[in-house]
Amino acid sequence: MSELLLLVESKEGLLDKTTLELIRGGSELAKDLGIDAAAVVVGNETSPLAESVASYGLKKIYKLEHPLLKGFQPEAWAGALEWLARQITPRIFLISHSFVGKEVAPRLAYRLDTELTTDCLNLRIDPQDGLLIRTKPIYGGNAIAALKCAGLPQMVTVRKNAFEPMEKVTTKSDLVDMVPALDESIIKVKSLKTVKEDVVELDKANMVIAGGRGIVAKEDFEMLAALAQAMSKSQGKVMIGCSRPVVDKSWMSSDRQIGLTGSIIAPDTYIAIGISGAIQHLVGMIRSKKIIAINTDPGCNMFKVADVGVVEDYKALIPALVKKLEESA
């Protein structure tokens, strides 16, 4: 029971930034406890990723390889990680609060008979008992809870940006080959096909123009598109986003949703149109440098967090604004 273990994730074949954040956070916790920090790479061919994660000061990298671990099948990954955890009995297990993490962590925690805390913002060690103190937002971010759980490994998923990414070091981690005992029979959910869609990555935008419940018709998003077009001449990359009710109405796909269960973004400029400012939405955009709110209700919450506000019907304001921007361009 000596190591801190973290799960390595990749994005388009490359090491994901959230993994570097876990390495930073994990290395500090391991240092506080006087234990080693290690990572596990999962797949049918783990060498390239294991090589790239070996330069960040971890003691060991476990290469967990098996033909069934090709792609990402949650039951196979949970099964393989359960096998590894039983071999090496880690004291702490850190996983990103990512798509993979949300799928794997609860299943794994159950199988290891431990308790998981998801979506943590901060972690520290209680000097009294050596347990993890897990800080996470609750009630959509209206309160911050710090909690402790029994059980080993101490297991959490960690929110993106909770720690600064780790920098490279000159030493290399030891690579350890591990072949889990896995059987096809553990896979009960069969993947028939994956359909790629044009997924919008809102975190790449300089400006995001978002519509909410106050947008009364689907067609009105064309006004927002016209505004985005006009803004793109001076504001860099401009993208259209929305709050949750718009996705619920199927007017937009969920990759455009901003908030606790959508994207959490920090663009230079955020324009909120017809968004009242429920806290779970605010969590997703509050770190924007400039926030502009357009709403007919002067008392709405979005104005309380905005730098600039306009109390006006968007149907009158947006076309006038587009016209003015185009005249002066």
Partner: peptide, 19 residues
Amino acid sequence: IQLVELSPPPDMRRACLFI
């Protein structure tokens, strides 16, 4: 649930300039 501590979130308010 073993709560060690519960605290309010950081203040999100900004001074809004109304146009």
